[in-house]
Structure formats: structure tokens, C-alpha cells
Amino acid sequence: MIRKIITFLLVTAIHIPVSLVSAQEYDASATTAFTSDYAVRCKILDIEGEPEIYATYRIYLATDTTKTVCTGTTTIDGIFDAQLPQTGDYILYISTIGKNTIARNFSVDSANPIIDLGILTSEISNAQLDEVVVVAQKPLISKEIDRIGYDVQADESSKTNTIIEMLRKVPMVAVDGENKITVNGSSNFKIFKNGRPNNSYTNNAKDVLAGIPASMVKRIEVITMIR
């Protein structure tokens, strides 16, 4: 089966400033609303103390590392809040392009339903080797000069979700409760399929993309700069 590549092209240039938070400014007591009873929170910084934007995280039950229970990317502040389905022992993997992958074990139970792992750095020193293990993981996000890509097939949830559901994970794309799509804060965008503009997709985006299984799409790209 040939899988499509779906590209979102910005028509209007909208600048969104990136908020950079240093390690000293990170507040582990900051509250986040969870709909699940169990969750894990973490902040990823590079060796210079800047947030790792769009780093990919994958969480597995320690008893089954063949299937992810949660997958996503960090925010522009390098933070993620991931909801967990149940109590138990978990393994967290964090990967960033060009960096070593971080692995961390943690557990949640009724006494400790929300775990804050604090700050992790994207490069490992010898002093950290007893806490962090380096493994090979494929990032969900790729960044180029003019675009951000989301590897749909590398996300386990693509097997059961539609494209509209996957778009909620793509950086710079937002989907509200009525499936209205905005790209970089704007509803003025074009959609390309396999490199060619597709007016049907663009004009009926929320309906068309809600009907396409994510398993049929290889990659979603957001063009941030028109050459």
C-alpha cells in the first residue's frame, strides 16, 4: 500500500515567540489539569539549559515494551504531561534528533498517582549513567529549515486513529472540539497531498481528514517558510 504524505502550507506568515525557560525558572509544583487519575510530567533541557522543543516521548508498561501506552512531543517549553491508563511500572523514552535517547523507569500507584520527574537533560554525563540509559529510538518529529514533519507511522496510535486525531499531536497545528483546524494560529492554509495542492482537502479539511485512517498516511508536514 502506498501511503500519502500530507502537507499543510501556511498562506499567511504568523510569528509565535518561543518562550525559553531556564532550569532555575522551572516550577515543579505548577499545576496541570488531568482527566486521568494517573499521569507523569517532565521537562527536557539541552546542555545549555534551553528547552528541547518537540522532543519525542514514548511510554511503555515495564511488562510490555512492544506497545506504547502513550506517545507525543514536548511543548515549546520542553514540557510534557502524559496521562497513564493505570497504576504500575513504566519505562519512559525521550528522543531528539542528533541527541542520545534518554530512558527512565518510574511507577505510579494510588499513593503516588501523578509523578513529576523534574528536569532531564538531552545529553548524558558519566554522573548520570546510573539513572539514565541510552537506547535507539526514532523521533516522531523532524525539523528542517522550512518545515516540521510528523512521522505518522512511527506513532503506535496511527493504527486506530484518523488523520484528524493525529493532527492534534502535530506541532503548530491545533484541532478544537468541533474538528476545526488552525495552523500556526491561522485558519488560512492550504493542504498538499504527495506534493500537490488538493483543493478538496483544503476546502473540506475537517470532514475529509476525519474520514481518512491514519494508517494510510506516511507523514504530515507543516511548511513554515515558502522558498
Rank of each mutant, 00 (worst) to 15 (best):
residue 179 N to Y: 01
residue 7 T to P: 13
residue 110 S to K: 10
residue 175 V to S: 00
residue 3 R to H: 11
residue 13 A to Q: 13
residue 127 A to E: 14
residue 218 K to W: 13
residue 110 S to M: 09
residue 187 S to K: 10
residue 71 T to I: 12
residue 218 K to A: 13
residue 148 I to E: 00
residue 196 R to Q: 15
residue 174 A to N: 10
residue 82 A to V: 08
residue 66 T to A: 04
residue 160 T to C: 11
residue 90 Y to K: 05
residue 36 S to P: 03
residue 188 N to V: 15
residue 206 K to A: 12
residue 178 E to W: 05
residue 177 G to E: 04
residue 47 I to K: 05
residue 119 I to V: 08
residue 75 T to M: 03
residue 182 T to Y: 06
residue 30 A to C: 05
residue 163 I to R: 09
residue 54 Y to Q: 07
residue 76 I to Q: 14
residue 46 D to F: 07
residue 54 Y to A: 03
residue 134 V to M: 00
residue 133 V to N: 07
residue 43 K to G: 11
residue 97 I to L: 13
residue 227 R to V: 05
residue 110 S to R: 12
residue 57 Y to T: 02
residue 206 K to V: 09
residue 204 N to C: 11
residue 166 M to I: 15
residue 68 T to D: 02
residue 48 E to I: 07
residue 34 F to C: 09
residue 218 K to R: 10
residue 160 T to A: 12
residue 63 T to D: 15
residue 168 R to Y: 02
residue 85 P to G: 14
residue 123 E to D: 09
residue 103 A to H: 07
residue 116 D to C: 09
residue 226 I to N: 15
residue 128 Q to I: 09
residue 15 H to W: 15
residue 42 C to M: 04
residue 187 S to N: 12
residue 195 G to Q: 06
residue 140 L to Q: 02
residue 154 A to W: 09
residue 34 F to M: 07
residue 216 M to H: 12
residue 208 V to K: 07
residue 100 N to T: 14
residue 125 S to M: 07
residue 23 A to F: 13
residue 146 D to R: 01
residue 110 S to D: 14
residue 60 Y to N: 04
residue 95 S to T: 13
residue 90 Y to S: 01
residue 154 A to T: 05
residue 176 D to E: 06
residue 111 A to K: 14
residue 55 A to L: 02
residue 188 N to P: 11
residue 37 D to P: 10
residue 38 Y to D: 06
residue 36 S to M: 05
residue 202 T to V: 07
residue 5 I to Y: 13
residue 143 K to A: 11
residue 82 A to H: 04
residue 153 Q to I: 15
residue 108 V to K: 01
residue 158 S to V: 01
residue 131 E to L: 13
residue 42 C to R: 00
residue 28 A to H: 14
residue 87 T to H: 10
residue 18 V to E: 11
residue 79 I to F: 14
residue 25 E to Y: 06
residue 142 S to D: 07
residue 171 P to L: 04
residue 70 C to S: 10
residue 11 V to R: 13
residue 168 R to H: 01
residue 6 I to V: 10
residue 71 T to N: 05
residue 87 T to R: 07
residue 120 L to K: 04
residue 67 K to M: 06
residue 79 I to W: 05
residue 214 A to H: 06
residue 34 F to D: 10
residue 50 E to K: 14
residue 7 T to R: 10
residue 192 F to E: 08
residue 59 I to C: 07
residue 77 D to E: 08
residue 14 I to T: 12
residue 140 L to H: 06
residue 204 N to A: 08
residue 101 T to Q: 00
residue 119 I to Y: 02
residue 51 P to K: 03
